[in-house]
Design a protein around this nucleic acid. Structure first.
Length: 591
RNA sequence: GGUUCCGUAGCUCAGUUGGAUAGAGCAACAGCCUUCUAAGCUGUAGGCCGAGCGUUCGAGCCGCUCCGGAAUCACCA
């Protein structure tokens, strides 16, 4: 039972004793805002009908009852119909002392949740948009684990289709056999280069054909590279050995490249699915849907669902030639996963451009009679925009993931060199810390924004290491760890020292903030929002910095107080580390 | 046009199930290193919460109508 529930029960007792039985809805308790003194606040307006007196008199009466009957209540004040209740310092101190090893880790819920994220195409390297996706997916998965769920991180690799064939045909025609080994280029970048190459040649051919009198549509259809790419797709589907071999080789290059980027980002997966294995799924569902009369077959043989009654459109599920589309595959994979993995819930981390797709997906699944359709969540994150506007690959305004990562790390390196704080470290140590800090800046910058909002990525601002940033929080952690090291060197033991007789208001405040951690994690999990954890870690770090500035920890002369301060600091650094870990951010011992 | 989402300080963003005087950071200005790491701390300034109605004891938050912006409405994925 948490503190709020405890107090709510006591307040309900008070109200019942004073005014008789009252609707539970009318007893509203919340944390007291910072501007006022008190820990929890009872809003008395909803109780006025029962009390039949003024707001202030009601609040006063309840406050007096609580002060007299609840040992933990230390005092209260009444302001304009708000009863602010303060709990005794001793109560908070006892709560602090009771913090255990797995603080913030929720009890097992028995629920299994799959989080699908990343889901890249294998024809080009990852960019800034993918970074947001990957960071979000990883963090949400970690947060859900901390909430006590069993989590499966899944990646669905889009490794087949015409866009892959575009890179392949361009490589065959224009590369002269270039490989990652021969060029020294990262595999995903090399393949991406030929995807761009395809587009260049394709455009040129269209222009040529149109100059020769073809219509635009005709030119697009008959351009030789495109025709060859389509031939290649048909050969791939027929498992032509040569095409299939090339496909495996080039995808292999891409996977090597992706592995490096994923490692740099610190994300991982429990399961990797490939569309080349799953793209035929869902056809049996189509038969099922036809039998149930949910789908209809047209004269040309194509299969559709009419969703106009639900305010949507008609949707194709099977082409006239019997091949399936994206929706069909997604229906199939969803059904397969829920049954094979015994999922209670699935969260798709996919950009908001696919809102319509997921709306339709859920609707179709529920029409097919799957009760778990409502347990599908589309974590629909907003686009990342640049100061110049949207990222457009054709205009060369995409921010490449690998470049961005290296820029951030380089900036961190320069910053460390400028302060000279890492001068006595080894090269390897300094590099590891720079990487931690650079990545911390990048990850925090992206994750501190509410996922579903479109966000602006300003490179200048992202590289700022002051204020509400990852490095600020990491720095607080490093300073605390430094104090704890110094305490250990001086042989100061603090773990088992008895609690002091008195606490400063700031210390009680820090204890309260610490105790909020489990609720914060639960809220972040319920809303799929790493930003909630980020804001918490920032506030905690900020409070500690103020405290640290005003009060010495190691120089405190009272032994019990010094020990308590060390315990408090240690606990804060641990919670910062845990919170940041939920965002995929590491914290250094020094920086 | 239909559907979904967004409009809060100059800029980037917070703002719990409706609660008190709407908060941070950046940028600007003014201070604080002989003292546990100044990647820090303190202060000043900055607001018709897009607009208007409504719901009620109370609205940045809920409802309706506008205005402005985004995404989507493919036999692409």
């Amino acid at each position: 039972m948490n503190i709020e529930q405890f107090l709510l029960a006591k307040v309900t007792d008070a109200v019942t004793a004073l005014y008789g039985p009252v609707d539970a809805q009318a007893v509203q308790i919340q944390k007291t805002r910072k501007e006022f003194t008190g820990d929890y606040t009872l809003v008395v307006f909803p109780l006025l009908k029962a009390s039949r007196t003024s707001p202030d008199a009601t609040a006063q009466a309840i406050g007096e009852w609580l002060a007299a009957n609840v040992a933990e209540v230390g005092g209260f004040n009444v302001i304009k119909g708000f009863l602010n209740i303060s709990l005794k310092d001793g109560f908070w101190a006892a709560q602090f002392a009771a913090i255990g090893e797995n603080f913030g880790q929720g009890a097992p819920t028995g629920r299994t949740i799959m989080v699908e994220y990343s889901s890249p195409n294998t024809n080009k390297p990852l960019h800034l948009g993918h970074i947001r996706n990957n960071l979000l997916g990883y963090s949400v998965a970690e947060i859900l684990k901390a909430c006590g769920h069993r989590v499966i991180k899944a990646n669905l690799v889009n490794d087949r289709g015409i866009h892959i064939c575009k890179s392949m045909i361009a490589w065959q025609l224009y590369s002269g056999g270039e490989t990652p080994a021969s060029s020294g280029m990262k595999g995903d970048h090399l393949v991406g280069k030929y995807y761009v190459e395809f587009d260049k040649h394709y455009k040129a051919e269209i222009k040529e054909l149109m100059a020769a009198g073809a219509s635009e549509e005709e030119a697009k259809r008959t351009a030789p590279v495109m025709v060859q790419a389509q031939q290649m797709l048909r050969k791939w589907e027929a498992r032509d050995p040569e095409v299939y071999g090339l496909w495996e080789t080039m995808n292999g290059w891409v996977y090597e490249g992706f592995a490096k980027t994923y490692k740099a980002l610190g994300v991982d997966f429990d399961k990797t699915y490939y569309e080349s294995n799953t793209y035929l799924l869902g056809k049996s569902l189509v038969e099922d849907g036809l039998r149930k009369g949910v789908f209809t077959r047209r004269e040309d043989g194509s299969v559709w669902i009419d969703l106009t009654a639900d305010g949507l459109d008609e949707k194709l599920l099977l082409r006239a030639d019997g091949t399936s589309v994206y929706m069909t595959q997604d229906l199939g994979t969803a059904v397969q996963r829920f049954s094979e993995e015994h999922l209670d819930e699935e969260i798709y981390v996919v950009g908001n451009e696919q809102n319509y797709h997921f709306q339709v997906l859920k609707l179709i699944l529920s029409k097919l009679g799957y009760p778990w359709a409502e347990n599908i969540t589309h974590l629909s994150y907003g686009m990342v925009e640049l100061p110049e506007g949207k990222m457009k690959s054709r205009e060369g305004t995409v921010v490449d993931a690998d470049d961005l990562i290296e820029d951030m790390v380089a900036t961190a390196r320069e910053m460390s060199a400028a302060t000279g704080k890492l001068d006595d470290c080894t090269e390897e140590q300094a590099e590891a810390i720079s990487r931690m800090v650079g990545m911390g800046a990048l990850k925090y910058f992206i994750l501190k924004v509410d996922p579903r909002k479109t966000m602006l990525f300003d490179p200048r601002e992202s590289i700022d290491f002051n204020g509400n940033t990852g490095p600020f929080i990491q720095y607080t952690h490093a300073r605390i760890r430094s104090i704890l090291r110094k305490a250990a060197e001086a042989g100061i033991a603090y773990a088992d020292t008895p609690a002091p007789s008195a606490y400063l208001p700031e210390e009680i405040g820090l204890i309260k903030q610490l105790l909020d951690f489990p609720d914060t994690v639960a809220q972040a999990g319920a809303t799929c929002s790493p930003a909630v954890v980020g804001a918490y870690a920032y506030e905690l770090a900020k409070s500690f910095n103020g405290y640290y500035h005003d009060h010495s920890i190691l120089k405190e002369t009272d032994e019990a107080t010094r020990a308590m301060r060390l315990r408090l600091s240690a606990q804060i650094s641990a919670v910062i580390a845990r919170g940041m870990a939920l965002l995929g951010i590491e914290v250094p011992e020094r920086m």
